[in-house]
Design a binder for these strands. Structure first.
Lengths: 197, 197
DNA sequence: GTTGTTCACATACGAGCCGTATGCGTATTG
DNA sequence: CAATACGCATACGGCTCGTATGTGAACAAC
């Protein structure tokens, strides 16, 4: 039986993460005070320090949660694609779309790296990136993609998609810019394809 | 004649920027206190607020200075290349190499975007991007590169290089990872070429 | 069932950092 | 030489964070 204390603790953790996610996304990490977050969750800083060890620990928990959600969406998008190669492209486009969401942009792309350090060193190894790496490795194995370093390629692809997203987000006419970015992304990615076709 | 007050002011601005650049690079923006920075420059926070309006203003000044230096180095690197296309690649590689420096990484790639917002809005960054865009446009006109949107391609290439740099900088063995990243970067960029080899 | 223990969380306190308001002294102006 | 402007220092209050300590409910032992 799950003891009553344990499930209470899960509950408070969830409430804190929910409140923090909201605050970090809207105000940014630095401007979000722990007092506000905990009060918003109906708790105090005592609970926060007990469960997450501090402000950074809370951010880490929020990042892990969002990261997991992103991976789920990436997998879903890839599985709908007609071929593995199209799956990779679809993954990239999906990544761009996710990066357009203010929450992802603020927490995962700006504050996260600044506070926690490089994403590839996050505890869960940045599942999002790991996923792309595996996809590329599979394409290399089947001969679709040139034999480059899979992680390097995944890194660059993600970086390209990320910058495309930031560009679109800051553009005056996102609707006009989006197709341009997607087209350029496809062209770039084609550089990985095995010669010919 | 440059009044004595004006040149004194330039002097204090330079001292503050120098101290801030040092502190931001080593401790990070959030952990660097204004009292420490100003004391290190032989001044007080009064001078800082008078000259830069606050902590963010000081960071902006530091960012602008480093940004200008980076653009200068990028231009120099591109001009040494044998062809426009190689110039584009060299520019990307140079960007990667610069991002290996802790100062650039910490201030320009992590804290800068988190505190000041989208880097592509920074004055010199725009100039750099514009130059890359023009280079690509020229390559398109001469038939070397596929007819994609030049600005989109420029942003994606920059983003790829940026992420490659972050990856290398955080790696256990940067010397081992660097060539992988450069190779993958060249492969990706080749996707823009008109003729496959 | 009662008694003792654990532990999740609250409360209290101190220190540091930031922004503004104000004061001071020197360069500048007429 | 008197008056003003201004670059910078000083003083103060508020906010935020981290730690140290308190407390009451859930669990365990008998």
């Amino acid at each position: 039986m799950a003891t009553k204390r344990a499930q209470m603790m899960e509950e408070t953790r969830a409430k804190l993460i929910r409140a923090a996610r909201e605050a970090f996304a809207t105000k940014g990490y630095a401007a979000a005070s722990m007092d506000d977050i905990t009060a918003d969750a109906g708790l105090t800083r005592g609970a926060l320090y007990h469960n997450f060890g501090g402000k950074k620990g809370l951010l880490q928990a929020v990042v892990d949660q969002i990261d997991a959600e992103m991976v789920t969406r990436l997998i879903a998008a890839q599985e709908r694609a007609p071929s593995p190669w199209e799956g990779l492209l679809t993954e990239g486009v999906t990544y761009i779309e996710m990066a357009l969401e203010p929450e992802v942009q603020r927490i995962m792309l700006l504050d996260g790296p600044a506070v926690l350090g490089d994403p590839s060193q996050w505890p869960n190894q940045n599942a999002c990136l790991l996923r792309t790496t595996q996809t590329i490795q599979a394409l290399i194995d089947e001969g679709t993609v040139k034999p480059v370093d899979a992680e390097a390629a995944a890194r660059l692809i993600n970086g390209a998609a990320l910058n495309a997203a930031l560009w679109i987000a800051a553009a005056d006419e996102p609707r006009v810019v989006l197709p341009k970015a997607v087209e350029a992304f496809r062209q770039l990615a084609a550089g990985l394809l095995q010669t010919e076709r």
